[in-house]
């Protein structure tokens, strides 16, 4: 393996070695993958989405959840193809509507862990309305947004999270629209757990996802990723490894951010990783269960 990649992953040669045989069977977490689905995935080699899938599996595994008790609901896009590879109840829906489908499913099955998996365009452009309302209702759903700042599947059009000035196939002269801050949007809409990390910081993603899934309320994890195939090429950002390294170099922890002076904070252009909200608010399905009890008890 080239030094280039090892550096980006902060690994030494020994750690990067994959066992030659039986490695799949030896890994408990990998048993969460579907054996009857032919791999490889549809993702481009080097894509960050696979890292998020790994983190999600490890988080679910860490919580000791049964496969039958987990539902993954996705919309349309590269990220939304994630559920098909995993051995849970998986619902691949229409573009932008993952959270709306998840709403019905969660209400029908309040005991299930329902996780909506979306890309940035899926969650915040076509699905923006469902995003804020799911958060407002505080439905016990985990929204996992993989933010790569671009529409990857359709070939690189600008999304609601494409930074100002960056190029896309539909922004050939640079993007003129300011992006949505995903976490701020979720916080404003009422989410009870909000955290952000990057695909470089995979272990941090594991932790945030585990906390988010355990949360009895609407939780959001923004996994900042990259698309070297479209966004990287159009903006001359190099290979997947270069973009992975950039996530390491261009992000800081929330602790480091909090230590900054107001001036430094105002000038900060780096991605801030960390947990921003972790509060408790009555969860929708619990409130509704209570309503049913009241009504069946004769309340008019």
């Amino acid at each position: 393996m080239s030094q280039h990649i090892l550096d980006a992953a902060a690994l030494n040669q020994d750690e990067a070695l994959i066992p030659k045989s039986g490695w799949f069977e030896q890994s408990e977490t990998l048993q969460k993958l579907r054996k009857n689905k032919k791999f490889p995935t549809i993702w481009c080699p080097g894509c960050g989405i696979g890292v998020v899938m790994g983190a999600l599996i490890r988080a679910i595994d860490h919580l000791g959840l049964k496969n039958d008790d987990v539902a993954l609901v996705a919309g349309i896009g590269c990220t939304a193809r994630m559920p098909v590879y995993m051995d849970f109840n998986t619902l691949h829906t229409t573009h932008g509507r993952a959270l709306a489908f998840a709403t019905g499913l969660k209400i029908a099955r309040p005991d299930m862990k329902v996780i909506a998996i979306m890309g940035d365009g899926d969650a915040l452009a076509i699905g923006g309305n469902h995003f804020i309302h799911a958060a407002r209702r505080n439905l016990g759903i985990t929204a996992l947004v993989v933010n790569n700042s671009i529409y990857g599947m359709t070939g690189g059009q600008y999304s609601p999270t494409t930074p100002l000035g960056k190029r896309a196939t539909t922004a050939p002269y640079g993007n003129v629209e300011p992006p949505f801050p995903v976490c701020d949007l979720a916080i404003a809409a009422g989410a009870t757990y909000v955290a952000r990390s990057t695909v470089y910081h995979a272990l941090e993603l594991d932790k945030f996802l585990a906390e988010a899934i355990a949360k009895d309320g609407f939780s959001l994890v923004e996994a900042v990723s990259y698309c070297h195939t479209t966004y990287g090429r159009l903006n001359k950002l190099g290979t997947a490894a270069d973009m992975m390294r950039a996530l390491k170099d261009n992000s800081i922890s929330r602790t480091a951010f909090d230590a900054m002076s107001p001036e430094q904070k105002a000038d900060n252009t780096k991605i801030v990783r960390g947990k921003f909200v972790d509060i408790d608010r009555p969860q929708y399905t619990a409130i509704y269960a209570n309503l049913i009890t009241r009504v069946q008890g004769g309340e008019k």
């Binding site: 829906t93 489908f101 019905g104 209400i107 029908a108 509704y288």
Partner: peptide, 24 residues
């Protein structure tokens, strides 16, 4: 013991009833 929800629009309503039926 049934459940009623007023969604944010008709697209979401249609999605939610499918989701609920998937849930049984």
């Amino acid at each position: 013991g049934g459940k009623f929800i007023q969604m944010e629009d008709e697209i979401a309503s249609m999605a939610a009833i499918i989701g609920a039926r998937v849930g049984g």
